[in-house]
């Protein structure tokens, strides 16, 4: 058997013993503790000792979704950052890029995810969806169509549904109650 050990300097060897923390866990610790979130975003941990599952609340301070509280659940698995975090929008929201089941159309959550991206990139991306809803990548086709056709009417729909109003038979969640 090859004597690999002689390839290794002892002082170097002593410095390399690693703990039993998973790579995903360490990466999440690094991502989270270096988060610098603006006042419009806040994280909540149901169990502070479980850093892989949490809620992000976005409260836009401008744009047509201004003032609403939008909760997103984040679930990170042990294959992070090879795989992106799983993100769902918790309340039912009238938005071209969110469907009624809470799926989110954000490229970096699926096809454009790369391990160099981090939790900050995802959070900033989500906030951007509220500032600039994108009718070209629709998940809620009706909302996208409304936005494309008449921006003012769309804004009115947003205001109504954010208060818990209904639109075409769908009742949306009130995102103001706190």
């Amino acid at each position: 058997m090859i004597k690999i050990w002689s390839m290794k300097k002892t002082e170097e060897a002593a410095a390399k013993k690693k703990p039993k923390t998973s790579a995903a866990q360490i990466r999440v610790q690094k991502d989270l503790t270096e988060l610098e979130l603006p006042s419009t975003m806040k994280t909540t941990f149901a169990d502070p000792s479980d850093i892989l599952n949490f809620t992000l609340t976005i409260t836009p301070d401008e744009g047509m979704y201004k003032g609403g509280c939008f909760d997103f659940s984040f679930a990170i698995n042990t294959n992070y950052p090879h795989e992106p975090p799983k993100v769902k929008c918790i309340p039912k929201v009238y938005h071209p890029n969110l469907d009624l089941e809470g799926n989110v159309c954000l490229n970096i959550l699926r096809e454009d995810w790369k391990p160099v991206l981090n939790l900050t990139s995802v959070m900033v991306g989500l906030q951007y969806l509220f500032l600039e809803p994108n009718p070209d990548d629709p998940l809620n086709k009706e909302a996208a169509e409304d936005l494309r056709r008449d921006r003012d009417a769309f804004t009115q729909n947003v205001t109504r549904t954010m208060k818990g109003g209904s639109l075409r038979g769908t009742t949306f969640d009130n995102v103001f109650k706190r």
Partner: peptide
């Protein structure tokens, strides 16, 4: 992975 909006 395909964009979710394309799938939808």
């Amino acid at each position: 992975a395909f964009p979710i909006c394309t799938i939808a």
